[in-house]
Computed example of a mutant assay.
Amino acid sequence: MQLTNIISALAVSTLAMCVSAQSPGATVVDNIKAVAANGTAKEYTLATTLRLASSIEAVVKAISVTDKNFTIFAPTDKAFADFTAANPETIVALTTNQTLLSGALFYHVIPSGAFDPKGAPAKQFVATANTHNYLQVNVEGDKVNLVYDQGNAAVIDSIASSNGIIHVIDKVMTPPRPAPVVAKEAGLTQLLGAVVSSNLTEVATDLKNGTLFAPTDKAFETVLAFAKENKLELTPTLLAGILKFHVVQGAIFSTNIVGSAKMGSLATALAGESLNYTVEGDVVKVYGAGQTALKLSPATVTKTDILVNGGVVHLIDAVLLPNITNAGNAAVVATPAGPGATNAAGMVAVSSMTLMGALAAAMALVM
């Protein structure tokens, strides 16, 4: 089915009533209507944005407020046409499922004010009206580039309005995909397998404003080799504590850390334990009290700011260790040396699937 046919079948909304010329003194809605009806000197129109927004009552209500400023990133009609040609199944799903369409439209809305690139930092992450989902905004001079999960969009025009601003963009942006989908592309194949085998796929798609420091496949291999070499044992309680240590409440981006203090700490999902970090240039290293006690190197953040549904993921090259006692070492007792031997560190040489399955379970703590 063609996009134009789908749109024509949508309910007519009050947004599409009277039309006047665009003006800084007009509201965001009135200016969208004006451009949709009359076009602009830059030869773009916003008819599709208007029509799709008109079909969702919650969107109509959100962009009709006049007592506060907000931002809309509005794709041009050409952007919608290009998106439809490249993603026919996706556009049909969006336009036949109001929940999906509402989420996609709200991802184009910044409710916290009118975004002005003048004086804005070169890189920042902004919360969208699609709850717990973020958008990366890069500014270079008068150029504004938006980075989302599956691509980037450029701002080609801006329309000041009485209750905010419309930034016209050349692409249709899609909200971040669930963590398991993004994990596969990020090379976290073992973690992804653990999520599936642990029946946590549904849970992992519903992250809520969280940050996950995710060890790479190589990091898993390293920690397993360390455990085997040192004949260390890890109890289920201790394992759960260690994995909680990889989860931080709140979305923490590289911009929150790089360029600020040279060192600091972040509260984790493990009660009473904070993850420490150091910054040297653009290099961020993270570690816990357990790594210090065992004289293990900190983990280096190898890739930052991977947007996922409900938060952000940073890849690290080592498994993080908190204070072992606080993580649940009280239940560990000494046994003779051998495959199941324990030591003061309280770690166990377990199979890779056991360790990865437990890490997947830790993801559920903020999901």
Rank of each mutant, 00 (worst) to 15 (best):
M1E: 13
M1I: 10
I6H: 07
A9W: 02
S13N: 03
A16Q: 14
M17Y: 14
S23D: 14
P24E: 03
T27N: 10
V28C: 12
I32K: 01
I32N: 10
I32Q: 11
K33E: 05
K33D: 04
A36G: 08
N38C: 09
G39S: 06
T40I: 10
L46C: 12
A53I: 03
S55L: 00
I56Y: 02
V59H: 00
A62Y: 02
I63R: 05
S64Q: 12
V65H: 00
T66Q: 13
D67K: 04
T90G: 08
L94T: 01
T95V: 06
T95G: 05
T99F: 04
T99Q: 13
T99Y: 02
L101H: 07
L101A: 06
L105H: 05
F106D: 00
H108M: 03
V109D: 06
I110K: 00
K118M: 03
G119F: 13
Q124N: 11
A127Q: 14
A129Y: 11
N133W: 06
Q136R: 11
G141E: 07
G141W: 01
K143H: 12
K143G: 01
N145W: 03
V147S: 12
D149K: 08
Q150T: 15
G151K: 06
A154R: 11
S158N: 05
S161M: 02
S161V: 00
N163T: 12
I165Q: 07
H167K: 12
D170Y: 11
T174E: 03
R177G: 12
P180Y: 07
V182E: 04
A186F: 07
L192K: 15
L192R: 14
A194P: 05
V196W: 02
V196S: 06
S198R: 12
G210W: 02
F213P: 01
K218F: 12
F220Y: 12
T222N: 08
F226I: 15
L232M: 11
E233C: 14
P236F: 06
P236E: 09
P236G: 09
V248S: 03
A251F: 01
A251Y: 03
T255N: 01
T255H: 00
T255I: 08
V258R: 00
V258K: 06
A261E: 15
A269E: 13
G272V: 08
D282A: 15
D282P: 01
V283H: 12
K285N: 14
P298F: 06
P298C: 01
T300S: 15
K303R: 14
D305E: 09
I306N: 07
L307K: 08
L307V: 05
G310L: 01
V313A: 06
L321H: 00
I324T: 03
A327Y: 00
N329K: 11
A337S: 15
G338F: 08
G340P: 01
A341Y: 07
A344W: 14
A345P: 04
M347P: 04
S352H: 05
T354S: 12
M356G: 04
